[in-house]
């Protein structure tokens, strides 16, 4: 439904002279979704974010956040977007409460409501014990909490987080993940960039992969992986290593476009690849069972976001590679 769309970009393009930083980017995020924006350095992530928060003017295309034009209505845009950049942007000699109080006052929140709101966001982000600390004396993880609290002060519809898990210890990462999921649960929409891809894949509902300013893949993690994947890896574990030779020959004979069939005696496992997108493992299993081979386990090895990203990056590096479909 259209009213559920919080972020919508159409052919968003940003050019610096002849160089294209962003090439006809079209994205959509629905309310309550967390989108992970993935890309190598210089892929166009920061350019996208800076256009969305109104700091850059696109060369062409449009971007709407909750119906507000990112390029035209700066005053309304500031109210609907919360942006946490990768730099903290602190002030010396200020305590955390004073820091949050300033930003809340800058958003015009009345004094009483401001005190309440600061308490709420500090509680939500775990920054409450830091209230009396000087901002410059905080550790990186603490600064991330305060920065997130600052981003949430004006209760924005879309929260854009640039590398939120950067520099956090494992415990803080788990907490951050939980917090972002909680925010999405409250109906907030999040756009998150990160280089820690396993982290992103755990929290994101949808991902978008950028390379050289172009959107290479977008959709749920499963959709992206399915589109990205060209070689699928299957593993079949047998009850006994005695069946390995028979099973291997049957697989080579019946599986279409099969490649790299490897049998491991120690693991009693056969691994093989196929580039056939519609390959169904159950057909092969029926053949093996029909040949009275006992199977204890079988599965298609999952591809994670990291692999998908590397696959895309490799293809982009190779000009002869076929284009990746966008979900």
């Amino acid at each position: 439904m259209m009213h559920d769309l919080v972020l919508q970009t159409r052919d968003l393009t940003k050019a610096y002279g002849d160089a294209l930083a962003l090439d006809r980017l079209s994205l959509e995020i629905c309310r309550g979704q967390i989108m992970g924006l993935v890309g190598a350095n210089g892929a166009g992530k920061t350019t996208t974010i800076r256009i969305l928060v109104g700091q850059l003017r696109p060369t062409s295309g449009s971007a709407l956040i909750n119906g507000v034009d990112c390029t035209g209505d700066a005053a309304r845009l500031k109210r609907v977007v919360g942006y946490m950049p990768d730099v903290f942007g602190g002030y010396d000699n200020m305590r955390v409460f004073e820091y949050l109080d300033f930003f809340a006052a800058a958003f015009g929140i009345p004094r009483k409501a401001r005190i309440k709101r600061i308490d709420e966001v500090a509680e939500m982000t775990g920054a409450r014990p830091l209230r009396d600390c000087y901002v410059e004396s905080l550790s990186h993880g603490m600064k991330q909490r305060v920065a997130l609290a600052r981003t949430l002060l004006h209760d924005p519809e879309l929260i854009i987080l640039d590398e939120p898990a950067n520099g956090l210890d494992p415990q803080a990462r788990i907490e951050m993940r939980r917090l972002l999921r909680d925010l999405a649960g409250c109906g907030k929409t999040l756009l998150v960039t990160s280089h820690i891809l396993p982290e992103l894949s755990r929290i994101c509902d949808v991902v978008a992969i950028l390379a050289h300013g172009k959107l290479c893949a977008a959709g749920t993690l499963d959709e992206v992986v399915r589109h990205v994947r060209q070689r699928r890896l299957f593993e079949i574990e047998l009850a006994s290593a005695d069946y390995l030779d028979v099973a291997q020959s049957l697989i080579i004979r019946h599986v279409p476009t099969v490649a790299d069939v490897v049998a491991s005696v120690v693991e009693r496992t056969i691994r093989f690849y196929t580039t056939e997108p519609d390959f169904d493992l159950s057909d092969t299993l029926s053949i093996l069972v029909g040949a009275e081979i006992k199977i204890t386990q079988c599965r298609e090895a999952p591809m994670d976001l990291e692999e998908a990203f590397i696959t895309i990056a490799d293809r982009r590096a190779d000009p002869a590679a076929c284009p990746v479909p966008v979900g």
């Binding site: 700091q55 942007g89 800058a106 015009g108």
Partner: peptide, 13 residues
């Protein structure tokens, strides 16, 4: 220099 200007620009001030 500290990056706080970008944050200030994000407020309605």
């Amino acid at each position: 220099e500290t990056g706080a200007w970008a944050l200030l620009c994000m407020t309605p001030l």
